[in-house]
Computed example of a mutant assay.
Amino acid sequence: MVEAVGPGVTTLAPGNEVFGLPRHPPPAGTYAEYVTSPARHLVRKPEALTHVQAAALPPAARSHPE
């Protein structure tokens, strides 16, 4: 869940449930309770998905580098 956003972030807001691969690769320490991430590395979790389902998407969805 988003706790806060930085200046200029318009795609996310505090309270949004999100998922993604922050700073991938290398690992970003996302097993921590809190993590910072560029907003473009996260998307809002659809309400129809559980957190477990959303967690499975980033590795499958990111099939090629930017």
Rank of each mutant, 00 (worst) to 15 (best):
G6W: 10
P38F: 11
T11Q: 13
G6N: 07
A48I: 11
H64S: 13
L57V: 12
Y31S: 12
P46T: 08
G8D: 09
P65Y: 12
P22E: 03
A39C: 03
A56Q: 09
R40G: 01
P7C: 01
G8I: 06
R23Y: 03
P26F: 11
P25Q: 02
L42Y: 06
H24P: 00
A28F: 04
E66R: 15
V35Y: 00
V18I: 12
H64K: 13
R23H: 08
P38Q: 08
A55I: 00
P59G: 12
R62C: 12
A13D: 08
T36D: 00
G20M: 01
P46I: 12
E66D: 14
L49I: 04
E17D: 15
P7F: 02
T30P: 01
E17C: 07
V43Q: 10
P46D: 14
E33D: 14
H41A: 13
H51S: 13
G15Y: 05
A32L: 00
L57R: 10
H51N: 09
V2F: 09
H24S: 11
P65E: 14
P26G: 14
T30K: 04
R40P: 00
G15H: 06
R44C: 08
V9A: 13
Q53N: 05
L21E: 05
E33P: 01
V5M: 10
E33V: 04
R62P: 00
T36W: 01
T36E: 04
A13T: 10
E66G: 15
A39W: 06
Y31N: 12
A48T: 14
V5K: 10
P25T: 01
K45D: 02
H51T: 04
E33H: 08
N16L: 06
A4Y: 03
P65V: 07
P14V: 06
K45T: 06
K45R: 15
P46G: 10
A32F: 00
G6Q: 10
E66W: 14
E33Y: 03
P27E: 08
A60N: 06
E33L: 08
S37I: 03
H64D: 07
A54M: 03
E33C: 01
G29A: 02
M1K: 10
A61Y: 04
A48Y: 10
S63T: 13
R44D: 05
V9S: 12
V35M: 00
E3Y: 05
R62V: 13
S37E: 02
N16E: 13
A4M: 09
T50D: 07
V43W: 11
V5Q: 12
P25A: 03
R23G: 07
A54W: 01
G29D: 03
R62D: 02
V2I: 15
P22L: 04
T10R: 14
S63K: 13
A4D: 15
A13V: 09
H64Y: 13
A55G: 04
P7H: 07
P22W: 02
R40Y: 05
T36I: 05
A56M: 11
L12M: 06
V52N: 00
R23K: 09
E47P: 01
E47Y: 06
A56H: 11
A61M: 12
H41R: 06
A60T: 10
G6A: 07
H64P: 00
M1Q: 07
